[in-house]
């Protein structure tokens, strides 16, 4: 008996109306979710993030060389060649070399020579970037790929 009562409570028209509204909302939501992907293209229109930085022997030892036109510092130590991003991890300003490491002009973050934070608001150290070797022997730094600090390209 309760089954019959329930059928009466939600009538045929109510059910159809509910189904129609449900279908309408579902299709709208699906379309909207598709639309939400609009602001994020499959490929971001950035310039190439990889760039040559010179032959391994030309990289200075125990000092940093700013790669012209890129936000990259390269240097060489006993362990090998490494590259550090010059983009501050706080709010994206470009750090400048200082006697003790790097200073950020925007909000005063300070980093030591290995890119570790020593002061200011930066949440983490400067990114270390992946170094590879191109077929012609020059080294290539990829600004899009970070590596754990202390990763060297062995000479």
């Amino acid at each position: 008996m309760s089954a019959d009562d329930r059928v009466k409570e939600v009538g045929r028209r109510d059910l159809l109306s509910l189904a129609a509204w449900g279908a309408f909302c579902a299709s709208l939501a699906t379309a909207m979710i598709g639309m939400l992907r609009l602001p994020k293209p499959s490929v971001l229109p950035d310039p190439s993030l990889k760039g040559k930085v010179g032959l391994p022997g030309a990289i200075p030892e125990e000092e940093y060389r700013k790669v012209p036109g890129r936000n990259v510092f390269v240097s060489r130590s006993e362990q090998g060649v490494f590259a550090i991003s010059s983009v501050c991890t706080h709010l994206g300003c470009v750090v400048a070399p200082a006697p003790a490491g790097f200073n950020c002009p925007c909000h005063g973050s300070r980093f030591d020579a290995m890119g570790r934070v020593v002061g200011g608001p930066a949440p983490r150290g400067l990114d270390w970037l992946k170094v590879t070797k191109a077929p012609d022997g020059e080294l290539v730094v990829d600004e899009g790929e970070t590596v754990p600090p202390g990763t060297y390209w062995k000479v």
């Binding site: 602001p39 994020k40 293209p41 971001l44 229109p45 950035d46 994206g92 899009g144």
Partner: peptide
């Protein structure tokens, strides 16, 4: 990261 991409449409401030 989503908010930044939404705002800039890119990794850095540019044409997009």
């Amino acid at each position: 990261g989503f908010q930044k991409t939404l705002l800039l449409g890119s990794r850095s401030v540019g044409e997009e």
